[in-house]
Nucleic acid binder design. Structure first.
Lengths: 204, 204, 204, 204
DNA sequence: GCCTAACCGAGACGGTACGTCACGTCTTAGA
DNA sequence: TCTAAGACGTGACGTACCGTCTCGGTTAGGC
């Protein structure tokens, strides 16, 4: 039970950097705790003192990366609620815009390696999966819930629809194509998903 | 390089059995090639001669399991095309029935451990992922394509709909809930997915 | 490369003991590094960290055995130069006595297995052979050189004789009989060697 | 229990060649039975059928090499008893000549690698050692016995001398210097050995 | 402003599994 | 019918990391 007050901030950052760099460079499976420690110029014990596994390290590093990005964004723009889904009144357009942005983000190689690795590890390591979903996935999904509820109020979505399920109609297909490379994804694809989801497959 | 004609069928089966059993008993990460070899009563080299990795072994073992199951089914029933989606004329009912069956199957612990492990490994190992998708995923998805095309002919699905994308509206959400435990799944859930997908979120 | 200061003395001793015991029990060829590690309760890496080969381990173990024996002898006797050849004035008698003692020593099964193994390995592994000769053989031979030089001063050996060559006349035959079992050896044999060497084969 | 009548002569020769070549090229320890079989273009079983170990193969190959050399010599010269020690009446000169020839032979790299390897293996493998000594060593030594007995009859060696021991005075030192590299050897050295042995170390 | 307890880097340790090599046995295709 | 080819179970190799454990040194908090 270490004393967080004495914790070295410099080492913590160095470990995050080393972990992210190694996963990007050589992939998650070949990234080792010894490698992270060596790259960070840190003793192995310093890692074992504060984390339980390399997945743990990477998860925190990735969360930290997100926070930094958020703070950077918060810093320049005056807008405090950066990460909400826009509401122009046109639900289809708003969803398409957000999904297109998501496509761009998923293609950023900087995010791809660690998030794919964490997703994979989360499938097998239940505890990590729980944290991964709670910390990274659900907050994003909640934004869709909010936007869909607004759309319900505006009469653009049927009132009996459960937004938490509804969002999966377009989010999960994109996630699956990304994670499993089942098929390529593009703006056209996400646009189509939104149209299909909103207007259904059956003739109207 | 090795000569497949001289391959020992007994060893191959024993390796399949051992791999599946170990993954089920102690989980994929703690399953080792040495462990599989020992359990199968086989030399390590016999595994390395025919497979590249433990994921490879497990994938083939799982495919073999599927083939055996299929042959068993083919044996008792007279029906040669066992694995098609039924077509009663009622698309919604047919899809709901198939998804309910899928829910049951995904809950079978015998299938859960290896398929979850393979899915996870496929996310990170591109080559394995490709094979996983091609051999296990796509054949199943093709059945939905067929059924949706039939529905289009019957006028129950709009003709401009792309069935390969349409099927993702209900298949991917289920897959994601199963893989990532983002939320529980049930018959009610899959029924809802089918309804949402067929009739859309927007008011009709 | 490793830091000798942090070296575990306990492990080192345990490895020496295990190596000597195994060579004595099952013979050198069937002694393995894994076996030594297991017997010593030590990780294989701890052996590979400090030695290059099992021959290396055994050589050091054997040298250590000699040092211990020497220290034990030094401890009880007051004589610091324990290992010189006695000089009673009678060269023939002195040499015979030493060679008889050597015969006894070579028959000690505790020394036989490792030293025979090291000698054999040294024939084939040049580097090991060099060390074997320098650390084990030459120091002993030097004692003969000293004794023969004293004999030269006393007029018992012709002054033009090279002691380093002369000693081989009785040492090498004994060594060869021991190593290659070309013929049995006994006190009578070594006595004969000394007589032949001192007085020559030709009539006087 | 194989049937020697059906044995393939071509394979036998090919195995000898391969074994000698490999030992010369990569050394005895890195020579393997699989390597010999591959090099000889022969199945492993063909080796295991006729020999017990790689030392066995090498020993026979080496003996065969000697026989070939002998037959070649016998072929050109008319002299049937090629390998006796000459008797010019001058024992010292005869021995010096033979030892000089031996020095030359020991320096021949073609013989060095296999004979050194066999000697080493013979130290540790008792059965092989026995055969090595009986087949290779003793016949040569017997020639010295014969020559020394002749010298005794001629009054050049004291009658009470045991020739089998006497020969070791000059043969063993040379053997040891060669095998163990304890010191270099030269014509001067072997000449010296003969002089010391014949006339003794003590003043006459 | 000093003391001292903690964290720090470094890395040796007992282990486990890796992927490779060679062993000696056994089976098979083809000459 | 014999042989080359080589797959098989076995076991050791030498390496890579695991997670634990010391070791000095440094560093910051409470006295």
């Amino acid at each position: 039970m270490p004393e967080p007050k004495r914790r070295s901030e410099k080492s913590r950052k160095a470990i995050y950097d080393a972990a992210l760099a190694l996963v990007a460079e050589i992939g998650y499976p070949r990234t080792t705790i010894e490698g992270i420690a060596a790259r960070a110029g840190v003793g192995k014990q310093t890692i074992y003192r504060w984390w339980n596994s390399k997945a743990d390290v990477l998860l925190e590093a990735f969360l930290d990366l997100g926070e930094q990005a958020e703070q950077a964004a918060r810093g320049e723009g005056a807008e405090p609620r950066q990460y909400a889904i826009p509401d122009t009144g046109d639900l289809a357009a708003d969803l398409k815009a957000v999904l297109r942005a998501t496509v761009d983000e998923l293609r950023d190689p900087k995010f791809e390696a660690p998030s794919r690795a964490l997703a994979a590890e989360g499938l097998v390591d239940a505890e990590l999966g729980r944290v991964f979903v709670a910390k990274l996935l659900e907050p994003s999904l909640q934004l869709y819930v909010d936007r869909l509820r607004a759309a319900q109020k505006a009469g653009q979505v049927r009132p009996e629809i459960d937004p938490r399920i509804a969002l999966e109609l377009f989010v999960s297909p994109l996630a699956q194509r990304w994670l499993q490379h089942t098929a390529p994804f593009s703006y056209a694809y996400t646009d189509t998903l939104v149209d299909y989801a909103l207007y259904g497959l059956a003739p109207r």
